[in-house]
């Protein structure tokens, strides 16, 4: 059996009832955000009310996991020792809603290949009790 690729060190999030859907959706292979049951608005980061209609009927819902790189940077600075500098940090906008975006890493390709407009799909990296949502290029 092939060994799993070495995972980079990550500061992990503190999981709470409010954010569990986001950080643990990867256990089932899906990326979840809160969505308003009244008006359909997707909300990130999690909030107890909908910013559009102020409704409280927000529930976690899976997105397609498809999105587009809105911007990116290649981090060269060794903030912590790692063997994979430079690595790509990006802001990805999900297909579901204009402005529904998250900071993430683009993996599964050369860091130098990352660009604005790149189509990407979510993948998850498991660390302890959380699944970090990362993105890899969608094969053409």
């Amino acid at each position: 059996m092939a060994e799993a690729p070495e995972k980079s060190f990550r500061v992990l999030p503190r999981v709470t009832a409010a954010n569990e859907h986001f950080w643990r959706g990867g256990a089932e292979g899906v990326l979840r955000f809160l969505r308003c049951g009244d008006c359909g608005t997707w909300v990130h980061p999690p909030s107890p009310i909908c910013p559009s209609c102020h409704g409280k009927g927000l529930t976690p819902e899976a997105v397609s996991g498809l999105g587009t790189v809105a911007t990116w940077t290649l981090n060269h600075q060794p903030w912590v020792p790692a063997s994979d500098h430079p690595y790509a940090i990006a802001i990805v906008e999900l297909d579901e809603q204009s402005g529904l975006r998250l900071m993430t890493n683009v993996v599964g390709c050369a860091a130098e290949a990352v660009h604005i407009g790149m189509r990407v799909r979510v993948v998850f990296e498991e660390h302890d009790d959380v699944w970090i949502p990362l993105f890899e290029p969608v094969e053409a």
Partner: peptide, 26 residues
């Protein structure tokens, strides 16, 4: 250490440890 609340929770797990990373993307 576990990151809690914005901005830490939604930046540090993605190895974006500095405002250098955040502003670089702008």
């Amino acid at each position: 250490f576990r990151a809690s609340g914005a901005p830490m929770e939604y930046t540090l797990p993605f190895r974006a440890y500095s405002a250098a990373n955040w502003i670089a993307m702008v």
